[in-house]
Simulated scan of single mutants.
Amino acid sequence: MQKKNKGFTLVEMVITVSIFAILLGILVPSLNSIIGFRVQRATNSIASGLDKTKIEASNRLVGEMKLEKRSNGYYIS
């Protein structure tokens, strides 16, 4: 009578989990640097867009702006 193999042994599972943990330990620092680079690039892009917007708003400014405080809030005139 032959036995049918119905699963994994404990040793096989421990080895598999160990290999997975080692690979994950190698992969995580690489992912952090990639994510950090993308965040920095997005930050630079946003800062550049805000600078361009500020310059464009300054170029369109024709007169003088005055901030007035009224009873129901602040107004720019």
Rank of each mutant, 00 (worst) to 15 (best):
I55K: 07
V14M: 13
T9N: 10
R70Y: 06
E64L: 06
D51W: 02
E12V: 01
L27V: 09
N5E: 14
K6P: 02
S18A: 15
N72M: 03
S71M: 04
L31V: 12
E64N: 10
N5A: 12
G63K: 00
L24Y: 12
R41L: 14
Y74H: 07
T53F: 06
Q2R: 11
K54H: 05
V17A: 15
V14L: 11
S48W: 06
G63P: 00
Y74S: 13
T43I: 08
Q40E: 15
Y74E: 08
K4T: 14
S30R: 11
S33Y: 08
G7Q: 00
F20S: 13
S30K: 11
R41D: 15
S71Y: 10
A57C: 04
K66D: 03
Q2C: 00
I22N: 01
Y74Q: 09
I34M: 11
R38Y: 12
K54Q: 04
R60C: 09
E64T: 10
K54F: 11
L23F: 12
A21Y: 04
R70M: 09
G73T: 01
S71F: 10
K69D: 09
L31G: 07
T43H: 08
L31D: 04
I34Q: 10
I15Y: 03
R60E: 11
S45G: 08
M13Q: 11
Y74L: 14
Q40Y: 10
